[in-house]
Protein backbone atom coordinates (compact mmCIF):
# COMPACT_ATOMS: atom_id res chain seq x y z
CA UNK A 1 0.00 0.00 0.00
CA UNK A 2 2.90 2.36 0.59
CA UNK A 3 3.32 2.78 -3.14
CA UNK A 4 -0.35 3.42 -3.46
CA UNK A 5 -0.25 6.09 -0.77
CA UNK A 6 2.87 7.60 -2.25
CA UNK A 7 1.29 7.83 -5.66
CA UNK A 8 -1.62 9.66 -4.16
CA UNK A 9 0.52 12.02 -2.17
CA UNK A 10 2.56 12.66 -5.26
CA UNK A 11 -0.51 14.15 -6.91
CA UNK A 12 -0.72 16.83 -4.25
CA UNK A 13 3.00 17.39 -3.94
CA UNK A 14 3.78 21.05 -4.09
CA UNK A 15 6.77 22.48 -5.85
CA UNK A 16 8.74 25.26 -4.21
CA UNK A 17 8.41 28.68 -5.77
CA UNK A 18 11.58 30.19 -7.14
CA UNK A 19 11.88 33.82 -7.98
CA UNK A 20 12.34 34.48 -11.67
CA UNK A 21 15.87 35.43 -12.56
CA UNK A 22 15.79 39.10 -13.48
CA UNK A 23 18.19 40.73 -15.90
CA UNK A 24 21.15 42.62 -14.48
CA UNK A 25 19.83 45.91 -15.78
CA UNK A 26 16.54 45.33 -14.03
CA UNK A 27 18.33 44.56 -10.78
CA UNK A 28 20.42 47.71 -10.98
CA UNK A 29 17.32 49.75 -11.74
CA UNK A 30 15.54 48.26 -8.74
CA UNK A 31 18.48 48.94 -6.46
CA UNK A 32 18.62 52.51 -7.66
CA UNK A 33 14.92 52.97 -7.12
CA UNK A 34 15.26 51.55 -3.64
CA UNK A 35 18.10 53.87 -2.71
CA UNK A 36 16.19 56.81 -4.16
CA UNK A 37 13.11 56.01 -2.12
CA UNK A 38 15.21 55.75 1.01
CA UNK A 39 16.87 59.08 0.41
CA UNK A 40 13.60 60.83 -0.41
CA UNK A 41 12.39 61.64 3.13
CA UNK A 42 15.83 63.05 4.00
CA UNK A 43 15.82 65.21 0.92
CA UNK A 44 12.39 66.51 1.85
CA UNK A 45 13.58 67.42 5.34
CA UNK A 46 16.64 69.15 3.91
CA UNK A 47 14.49 71.08 1.48
CA UNK A 48 12.10 72.21 4.20
CA UNK A 49 15.05 73.23 6.34
CA UNK A 50 16.36 75.37 3.49
CA UNK A 51 13.02 76.93 2.81
CA UNK A 52 12.00 77.55 6.41
CA UNK A 53 13.82 80.91 6.91
CA UNK A 54 12.43 82.12 3.57
CA UNK A 55 8.88 81.76 4.88
CA UNK A 56 9.63 84.34 7.54
CA UNK A 57 8.10 82.12 10.18
CA UNK A 58 11.41 81.85 11.99
CA UNK A 59 14.24 84.23 12.52
CA UNK A 60 16.92 83.20 10.03
CA UNK A 61 19.61 84.23 12.48
CA UNK A 62 18.40 81.44 14.78
CA UNK A 63 18.26 78.73 12.13
CA UNK A 64 21.56 77.95 10.44
CA UNK A 65 21.37 76.51 6.94
CA UNK A 66 22.24 72.85 6.35
CA UNK A 67 25.39 74.02 4.63
CA UNK A 68 26.50 76.08 7.65
CA UNK A 69 25.92 73.10 9.89
CA UNK A 70 27.91 70.86 7.60
CA UNK A 71 30.80 73.30 7.59
CA UNK A 72 30.63 73.53 11.36
CA UNK A 73 30.57 69.77 11.59
CA UNK A 74 33.72 69.49 9.50
CA UNK A 75 35.38 72.23 11.52
CA UNK A 76 34.56 70.51 14.80
CA UNK A 77 35.78 67.24 13.41
CA UNK A 78 39.14 68.63 12.33
CA UNK A 79 39.93 71.26 14.95
CA UNK A 80 37.93 70.20 17.95
CA UNK A 81 38.22 66.44 17.72
CA UNK A 82 34.49 65.82 17.42
CA UNK A 83 35.27 62.20 16.63
CA UNK A 84 36.48 61.86 20.21
CA UNK A 85 33.13 63.10 21.48
CA UNK A 86 31.37 60.63 19.28
CA UNK A 87 33.61 57.88 20.52
CA UNK A 88 33.04 58.79 24.17
CA UNK A 89 29.28 58.95 23.75
CA UNK A 90 29.21 55.73 21.80
CA UNK A 91 31.24 54.04 24.50
CA UNK A 92 28.96 55.23 27.28
CA UNK A 93 25.82 54.22 25.43
CA UNK A 94 27.22 50.81 24.54
CA UNK A 95 28.40 50.14 28.06
CA UNK A 96 25.20 51.31 29.75
CA UNK A 97 23.09 49.48 27.21
CA UNK A 98 25.05 46.25 27.49
CA UNK A 99 24.93 46.20 31.30
CA UNK A 100 21.26 47.18 31.31
CA UNK A 101 20.19 44.53 28.83
CA UNK A 102 22.30 41.78 30.35
CA UNK A 103 20.38 42.32 33.56
CA UNK A 104 17.03 43.16 31.95
CA UNK A 105 16.79 39.93 29.96
CA UNK A 106 16.87 37.43 32.84
CA UNK A 107 14.85 39.65 35.16
CA UNK A 108 12.28 40.47 32.49
CA UNK A 109 12.09 36.79 31.72
CA UNK A 110 11.47 35.80 35.34
CA UNK A 111 8.85 38.51 35.75
CA UNK A 112 7.10 37.31 32.61
CA UNK A 113 7.34 33.65 33.44
CA UNK A 114 6.34 33.60 37.09
CA UNK A 115 3.06 35.25 37.77
CA UNK A 116 3.72 35.81 41.51
CA UNK A 117 6.98 37.58 40.68
CA UNK A 118 5.11 39.77 38.23
CA UNK A 119 2.41 40.67 40.71
CA UNK A 120 5.04 41.48 43.30
CA UNK A 121 7.40 43.55 41.21
CA UNK A 122 5.28 45.07 38.46
CA UNK A 123 4.38 48.21 40.46
CA UNK A 124 8.01 48.71 41.43
CA UNK A 125 9.25 48.37 37.88
CA UNK A 126 6.66 50.83 36.65
CA UNK A 127 7.47 53.26 39.45
CA UNK A 128 11.16 53.39 38.65
CA UNK A 129 10.60 53.29 34.93
CA UNK A 130 8.62 56.52 34.98
CA UNK A 131 11.25 58.55 36.82
CA UNK A 132 12.95 60.91 34.37
CA UNK A 133 16.72 60.37 34.44
CA UNK A 134 17.37 64.11 34.71
CA UNK A 135 15.57 64.15 38.04
CA UNK A 136 17.99 61.52 39.26
CA UNK A 137 21.14 63.45 38.41
CA UNK A 138 21.67 64.95 41.89
CA UNK A 139 21.35 61.55 43.52
CA UNK A 140 23.59 59.89 40.97
CA UNK A 141 26.24 62.52 41.67
CA UNK A 142 25.92 61.96 45.41
CA UNK A 143 26.27 58.22 45.15
CA UNK A 144 28.46 57.70 42.11
CA UNK A 145 30.46 60.88 41.87
CA UNK A 146 30.96 62.78 38.67
CA UNK A 147 33.17 60.38 36.82
CA UNK A 148 32.54 58.00 33.99
CA UNK A 149 30.73 55.65 36.33
CA UNK A 150 27.99 58.16 37.08
CA UNK A 151 27.17 58.57 33.39
CA UNK A 152 27.14 54.88 32.68
CA UNK A 153 24.93 54.29 35.72
CA UNK A 154 22.34 56.67 34.32
CA UNK A 155 22.39 55.00 30.94
CA UNK A 156 22.24 51.63 32.63
CA UNK A 157 19.18 52.75 34.56
CA UNK A 158 17.40 53.90 31.43
CA UNK A 159 18.33 50.81 29.42
CA UNK A 160 17.44 48.39 32.17
CA UNK A 161 13.94 49.62 32.88
CA UNK A 162 12.91 50.01 29.27
CA UNK A 163 14.38 46.60 28.46
CA UNK A 164 12.72 44.82 31.36
CA UNK A 165 9.27 46.00 30.35
CA UNK A 166 9.59 44.92 26.72
CA UNK A 167 11.06 41.60 27.74
CA UNK A 168 8.40 40.62 30.18
CA UNK A 169 5.49 41.83 28.09
CA UNK A 170 6.84 39.60 25.35
CA UNK A 171 7.38 36.56 27.54
CA UNK A 172 3.86 36.80 28.99
CA UNK A 173 2.53 36.29 25.47
CA UNK A 174 4.50 33.09 24.82
CA UNK A 175 2.29 30.48 23.20
CA UNK A 176 2.11 27.53 25.61
CA UNK A 177 1.29 25.17 22.74
CA UNK A 178 4.95 24.80 21.75
CA UNK A 179 5.95 23.86 25.27
CA UNK A 180 3.21 21.27 25.41
CA UNK A 181 4.31 19.83 22.07
CA UNK A 182 7.88 19.54 23.31
CA UNK A 183 6.74 17.89 26.54
CA UNK A 184 4.81 15.23 24.66
CA UNK A 185 7.89 14.56 22.55
CA UNK A 186 9.74 13.79 25.77
CA UNK A 187 11.63 17.03 26.41
CA UNK A 188 13.01 17.64 29.90
CA UNK A 189 12.66 21.03 31.60
CA UNK A 190 16.21 21.90 30.63
CA UNK A 191 15.58 20.94 27.00
CA UNK A 192 12.37 22.93 26.94
CA UNK A 193 14.23 25.96 28.20
CA UNK A 194 17.08 25.66 25.75
CA UNK A 195 15.22 24.49 22.67
CA UNK A 196 11.80 26.16 23.01
CA UNK A 197 11.90 29.07 25.39
CA UNK A 198 15.17 30.57 24.24
CA UNK A 199 14.19 30.72 20.56
CA UNK A 200 10.78 32.08 21.52
CA UNK A 201 12.35 34.72 23.77
CA UNK A 202 14.94 35.81 21.24
CA UNK A 203 12.66 38.18 19.31
CA UNK A 204 11.77 39.89 22.57
CA UNK A 205 15.42 40.20 23.55
CA UNK A 206 16.13 41.94 20.27
CA UNK A 207 13.13 44.23 20.61
CA UNK A 208 14.16 45.07 24.16
CA UNK A 209 17.63 45.87 22.88
CA UNK A 210 16.29 48.19 20.21
CA UNK A 211 13.92 50.01 22.54
CA UNK A 212 16.63 50.35 25.18
CA UNK A 213 19.03 51.63 22.56
CA UNK A 214 16.67 54.46 21.68
CA UNK A 215 16.07 55.31 25.32
CA UNK A 216 19.82 55.24 26.02
CA UNK A 217 20.61 57.77 23.33
CA UNK A 218 17.77 59.89 24.62
CA UNK A 219 19.30 59.78 28.09
CA UNK A 220 22.81 60.45 26.86
CA UNK A 221 22.62 64.24 26.91
CA UNK A 222 21.22 64.17 30.42
CA UNK A 223 23.99 61.87 31.58
CA UNK A 224 26.63 64.09 30.02
CA UNK A 225 25.26 67.05 31.89
CA UNK A 226 27.21 65.56 34.78
CA UNK A 227 30.47 67.40 34.33
CA UNK A 228 31.46 65.76 31.12
CA UNK A 229 34.42 67.16 29.27
CA UNK A 230 33.83 65.16 26.17
CA UNK A 231 30.83 63.54 24.55
CA UNK A 232 28.12 64.74 22.24
CA UNK A 233 26.01 65.86 25.19
CA UNK A 234 28.93 67.96 26.43
CA UNK A 235 29.40 69.42 22.96
CA UNK A 236 25.78 70.55 22.95
CA UNK A 237 26.05 71.85 26.51
CA UNK A 238 29.14 73.92 25.78
CA UNK A 239 27.75 75.22 22.53
CA UNK A 240 24.59 76.37 24.26
CA UNK A 241 26.68 78.29 26.80
CA UNK A 242 28.25 80.21 23.94
CA UNK A 243 25.05 80.33 21.90
CA UNK A 244 26.65 78.48 18.97
CA UNK A 245 23.46 77.30 17.38
CA UNK A 246 25.18 75.67 14.39
CA UNK A 247 27.27 73.49 16.72
CA UNK A 248 24.16 72.52 18.63
CA UNK A 249 22.61 71.44 15.35
CA UNK A 250 25.71 69.47 14.40
CA UNK A 251 25.73 67.71 17.80
CA UNK A 252 22.06 66.82 17.65
CA UNK A 253 22.37 65.48 14.11
CA UNK A 254 25.37 63.43 15.21
CA UNK A 255 23.39 61.80 17.99
CA UNK A 256 20.52 61.07 15.65
CA UNK A 257 22.75 59.56 13.01
CA UNK A 258 24.69 57.39 15.44
CA UNK A 259 21.48 56.11 16.99
CA UNK A 260 20.09 55.43 13.53
CA UNK A 261 23.22 53.57 12.52
CA UNK A 262 23.20 51.37 15.61
CA UNK A 263 19.52 50.63 15.17
CA UNK A 264 20.17 49.66 11.54
CA UNK A 265 22.85 47.22 12.65
CA UNK A 266 20.52 45.69 15.21
CA UNK A 267 17.81 45.38 12.60
CA UNK A 268 20.10 43.57 10.21
CA UNK A 269 21.16 41.19 12.97
CA UNK A 270 17.53 40.66 14.00
CA UNK A 271 16.47 39.95 10.44
CA UNK A 272 19.24 37.36 10.19
CA UNK A 273 18.34 35.67 13.44
CA UNK A 274 14.60 35.85 12.98
CA UNK A 275 14.24 34.76 9.38
CA UNK A 276 11.57 32.35 10.51
CA UNK A 277 9.23 35.06 11.77
CA UNK A 278 6.13 35.99 9.90
CA UNK A 279 6.12 39.66 9.12
CA UNK A 280 3.71 42.05 7.56
CA UNK A 281 6.57 43.36 5.44
CA UNK A 282 8.74 40.54 4.12
Amino acid sequence: MTNDALAQVAVTRETPVRSRPGTVARKVWQLGLHAGLRALPWLIVLLLWYLLPATGLVNSALVPTPWQVLVKFYEQLTTNRLWLDMYMSLQRVTLGLACGIILAVPIGFLLGWYRPARMLFDPLVNFFRSLPPIALIPLVIVYFGIDELAKVVMLFYAAFFSGVIVMYEGIVQTNPLFIRVARTLGATDEEIFRRIIVPLALPHVLTALRVALGVSWATLVASELIAAQRGLGAVIQNASNYFQIDTIYAGIICIGLLALLMDRCLRVIAARLLQWQERIVP
Binding site: L177, F178, R180, V181, T184, L185, G186, P199, L200, E278
Partner: peptide
Amino acid sequence: GADRGVIFQDYGVFPW
Protein backbone atom coordinates in the same frame (compact mmCIF):
# COMPACT_ATOMS: atom_id res chain seq x y z
CA GLY B 1 6.05 11.64 28.00
CA ALA B 2 7.50 10.29 24.80
CA ASP B 3 5.56 7.05 25.24
CA ARG B 4 2.44 8.97 24.18
CA GLY B 5 2.94 10.90 20.98
CA VAL B 6 0.41 13.67 20.41
CA ILE B 7 -0.72 15.26 17.18
CA PHE B 8 -2.35 18.51 18.19
CA GLN B 9 -5.43 19.97 16.59
CA ASP B 10 -3.57 23.20 15.86
CA TYR B 11 -0.36 21.45 14.75
CA GLY B 12 2.12 23.25 17.01
CA VAL B 13 4.77 23.22 14.29
CA PHE B 14 7.77 25.14 15.64
CA PRO B 15 8.02 28.32 13.54
CA TRP B 16 11.73 28.82 14.24
